[in-house]
Amino acid sequence: MSPTGPVDKDGIAFGSLGTSWVHLCVDMQRMFAEETDWHTKWMAIVLPRVVQLVELAPERTVFTRFVPAQNATEAAGTWQRYYRRWPEMTLDRLDPGLLDLVPDLRGFVPPARVIDKRVYSPWIDGVLDDELKRRGVATVIISGAETEVCVLAAVVGAIDLGYRVIIATDAVCSSADQTHDAALELYHNRFGMQVEVATVAQLLEEQRAT
């Protein structure tokens, strides 16, 4: 199916976003956009809509970057098995430039902010949560890759921390269509009181109306 997935109809269900929101853009990096072992085929398709969200308020945007382990031996626990499966994606072998955001997004930094993470979740070390709490952020709009991996970790972590979560359904993507679609169904059917699903057009319209 297309990267909009099966769920893009609900829109913003719980009132205006106001001004206490950020856009958390997950792992839109060259190593996923280009022909690597982790190539995410839909990234080029959703990128224009991600750009639209960033353009709405670059100063409210936080980009995450996934930074792999140096090598499998230095990884923790089951991450060793993970990096033995993908040794070409460790820092020992990967072109460091591939860690960068894709060119269409790099120019927004600053005022947009970049945080690096070594695991799927951007919340695990507490730095992002502390920063957003200091800024009075209540709502997190999420875009990026991959829908059922790092985006999922960002969504669940934000839910656990009490944020209002809105997933931009046509600005998330995956390398696997079936699990991308299943994840969107999961967000809709299992997190209905804590997650809203909206298209980028719906988000932009909401902001124009405020």
Rank of each mutant, 00 (worst) to 15 (best):
W86H: 00
E55T: 15
R49A: 14
R113T: 12
D104E: 11
R93Y: 01
A76D: 09
R113Q: 15
T40R: 13
G107S: 10
V109C: 13
D100P: 11
W42Y: 08
L53I: 03
V109P: 06
M89L: 15
V62N: 01
V54K: 03
G97R: 14
R60M: 04
A69C: 09
R93K: 11
A57S: 06
V50D: 05
I45H: 13
R84S: 04
R106F: 08
D100L: 10
D95N: 13
Q52N: 08
T73W: 09
V51L: 04
V54I: 07
L99T: 02
T73I: 11
T64N: 11
V62Y: 02
L98Q: 10
E88G: 12
R85K: 02
L91V: 06
D100W: 04
W42N: 03
P103S: 11
W42D: 05
E59K: 02
R106L: 06
L105F: 09
F108C: 06
F66H: 15
T90R: 10
V62I: 07
M43L: 15
R60K: 15
A57E: 09
L98T: 05
L53M: 05
W79C: 07
V51G: 02
L101D: 08
M89A: 14
T40W: 09
R49H: 15
W42R: 02
A69H: 14
P110W: 11
L53Y: 07
W86R: 00
F63Y: 11
T78W: 15
V62W: 03
T90G: 08
Q52V: 06
V46R: 04
R81Y: 03
P87Q: 10
P68A: 01
A44L: 07
L56A: 06
M43A: 07
P96S: 00
P96Q: 01
R65P: 03
P110S: 14
F66R: 12
P68R: 02
Y83S: 12
T61Q: 07
V67W: 12
Y82K: 05
D100G: 06
R65W: 05
L56V: 03
P68T: 01
D37W: 04
E74T: 10
A112L: 13
P58S: 00
P87M: 05
R65L: 03
R93V: 02
V109M: 15
E88L: 13
A112E: 14
A75R: 12
A57I: 01
L91N: 06
R65A: 07
L47D: 10
A57M: 02
A75V: 09
V102L: 04
L101A: 11
F66C: 14
R93I: 01
P58E: 00
G107W: 14
T78V: 14
L94P: 12
P58M: 00
R113E: 09
R49L: 14
W86F: 00
K41P: 06
V102G: 04
D104W: 03
L94R: 14
W79V: 03
T61M: 08
T73G: 03
Q80H: 06
H39E: 05
D104N: 05
R85N: 03
V50F: 04
L94S: 15
G97Q: 13
R84P: 03
L47R: 15
W86C: 00
R106D: 11
